[in-house]
Design a protein around this nucleic acid. Structure first.
Length: 421
DNA sequence: CGAATTTGACCCGCGC
DNA sequence: GCGCGGGTCAAATTCG
C-alpha cells in the first residue's frame, strides 16, 4: 500500500516537473523568438547601413581604392568599397585558414625545413613575424593584415604573486631572457593545446612594482578552447582587432583608446591603454589600478591569481576555479572579430532588446557585462553582424584616413603606454 | 620514461 | 660592419 502511495507521489512529482519544464521551454522559446526578431532587425539595419556606405563609396571609388592601395601596397578584392574591416566582418576564415595550414605544415624545427620549400617557409614566416615581414615584402593586403594581426599584442597587467596567470590554456615554456632595464627575467610561453597553434605569450614582472605581472599575448588560437580559456583568447583577439582596426588607419603612434576602453572594459575608462607605436601595436589592459573597481582582481593568497567577479560565472565550468579575469569578457573561439565585453549603446540596445540587456542603463556593471556576454556569445553570426553594425553606427564618429577607418575619440582619454619593460 | 623546464647558443633586426 | 637586444631553438636536465 505504501509502495503505491510512494509511486503516486513520485508520479505527481514527475508530472509537476514536466509541467515546470514545459513552462521553462515556453519561456525559452519566447526568448529565442525575441532574440531572432532582434537579430533580424539588426541585420536589416546593418544591411541598410552597408548599402548606404557602399553607395557613398561607389561615388568616389577610385579615390578610396587608390588610398587603400597606397596604404597596403595591394588591392584587396574582398573589401571592395565596404569600410568595415575584414576582421570585423569575417568570422575568422582568413586567419583560421592560414593557421590551420600552420598546424599542418609548421615545424618548429628549423633544421628540418629545407630551404626553398615554399609551404614550410610560409608556415615559418607566419610563425615568426620578423621573417614574414622580411621574406615576403610584396604580400597581398589581406596577408599583410594577417601578419599585422599576428604582430598585434595584448598586454595584461595584474598583481599576482604567482609566476603566471591562469588563463585556461596550456602553455609550454620555451625560453627565458633577461630583458634590458628589468632585473626580472622575461619568460616565453607557447600554446600547447594544439600542434602548430601560433599563440605565444610573454610573462614578466614589472621592474617598478614586482608584484605586477605583465602577460603579453600574441596571436590567435587555431583550435577550440576550453571554456576557461575562451574569454581570455577572445579578449586578446578582440583587443587586437580593435587596435588594428584603428592602428592601421592611424600613424600617430598613440591612437584612440576611448572606444576600446569602453568596449573591452566598459566599467573603467582608464584600464585599457593602447600603444600603436613600434615595434608592435599593443593593447595594455591594466588591472592594477582602481582598487574599488569591481573588476579589480584581488590578490590570491597562494597559487595563480584569480579575478573574483560577482554575477559572471557561467563561462567557467571548473568548480574549483573561481572566475578569473577573462571571465568578464565574452568569448568566441576562432573568431578574431569577436567584440567582447561589449557595452551596448542605447542606440544599439534599442534595436536589440536582448532579454537581459535592456536599453535601460544597467543597475550594475555585472549585469551589463553578463548581458553583453550572453548576447555576444549567443551566436557567432550575430556577433559578426553586431560588430559590423556597431562599426557602422559608430561611422558617425569615423573619419577616413588613407581610405581606412579612423575612430575619433570624443574625450581625451589617451593614455601613455604604461609598459614597464 | 615521457613530458616539461632550463639555459646557452643562435638568428635576426636595428641603430650607430 | 659591428654590437646590442629581443626572440627562438634545442640539447641537457629535472620532474612526475
Amino acid at each position: 500500500m505504501t509502495m503505491i502511495k510512494n509511486g503516486m507521489n513520485e508520479l505527481a512529482a514527475m508530472q509537476a516537473e514536466v509541467a515546470r519544464m514545459k513552462e521553462e521551454n515556453q519561456k525559452l522559446r519566447a526568448v529565442l523568438g525575441q532574440v531572432t526578431t532582434s537579430y533580424n532587425s539588426l541585420h536589416m539595419h546593418l544591411t541598410t547601413l552597408m548599402q548606404q556606405r557602399n553607395q557613398r563609396e561607389t561615388s568616389t571609388p577610385q579615390a578610396h581604392e587608390a588610398a587603400v592601395e597606397e596604404k597596403t601596397g595591394a588591392k584587396d578584392p574582398d573589401h571592395g568599397g565596404v569600410l568595415v574591416p575584414r576582421q570585423f566582418m569575417d568570422l575568422g576564415p582568413a586567419a583560421d585558414d592560414e593557421e590551420t595550414s600552420n598546424s599542418s605544415t609548421a615545424s618548429p624545427d628549423r633544421s628540418a625545413s629545407p630551404p626553398g620549400n615554399a609551404e614550410v617557409r610560409s608556415a615559418e614566416q607566419s610563425w615568426n613575424p620578423h621573417k614574414a615581414l622580411k621574406l615576403n615584402p610584396t604580400k597581398p593586403a589581406d596577408q599583410a593584415q594577417e601578419a599585422t594581426m599576428r604582430k598585434a599584442r595584448v598586454s595584461v597587467r595584474a598583481r599576482s604573486e604567482a609566476p603566471m596567470i591562469t588563463d585556461g590554456c596550456q602553455w609550454r615554456k620555451y625560453g627565458q631572457k633577461m630583458a634590458k632595464g628589468n632585473p626580472c627575467p622575461r619568460a616565453y610561453y607557447r600554446c600547447t593545446m594544439a600542434a602548430g597553434c601560433p599563440v605565444r605569450k610573454q610573462v614578466q614582472r614589472c621592474a617598478d612594482d614586482r608584484s605586477i605581472l605583465i602577460t603579453t599575448y600574441e596571436g590567435t588560437h587555431n583550435h577550440p578552447l576550453p571554456p576557461a580559456a575562451m574569454a581570455m583568447a577572445s579578449t586578446t583577439s578582440s583587443a587586437a582587432s580593435m587596435l588594428l582596426s584603428g592602428s592601421m588607419s592611424s600613424t600617430d603612434g598613440l591612437m584612440n583608446s576611448n572606444f576600446l576602453t569602453r568596449t573591452i572594459l566598459p566599467c573603467s575608462s582608464n584600464m585599457a591603454t593602447i600603444s600603436a607605436s613600434a615595434p608592435f601595436p599593443t593593447v595594455t589592459l591594466d588591472l592594477t589600478q582602481n582598487p574599488t573597481n569591481p573588476l579589480q582582481y584581488q590578490r590570491a593568497p597562494a597559487g595563480p591569481f584569480h579575478v573574483p567577479y560577482p554575477g559572471a560565472a557561467p563561462a567557467f565550468s571548473a568548480p574549483s576555479q573561481p572566475p578569473s579575469l577573462p571571465q568578464i569578457f565574452g568569448q568566441t573561439p576562432l573568431n578574431q572579430s569577436t567584440f567582447s565585453g561589449l557595452q551596448m549603446s542605447p542606440e544599439i540596445a534599442a534595436q536589440f532588446p536582448h532579454p537581459k540587456a535592456q536599453p535601460v542603463m544597467p543597475p550594475s556593471m555585472a549585469e551589463t557585462v553578463t548581458a553583453a556576454t550572453a548576447a555576444i556569445t549567443a551566436d557567432p553570426n550575430f556577433t559578426a553582424a553586431l560588430t559590423a553594425a556597431i562599426k557602422s553606427i559608430i561611422g558617425g564618429n569615423h573619419q577616413t584616413v588613407n581610405g581606412r577607418n579612423l575612430i575619433i575619440n570624443n574625450n581625451n582619454n589617451i593614455l601613455p603606454d604604461k609598459s614597464c619593460s
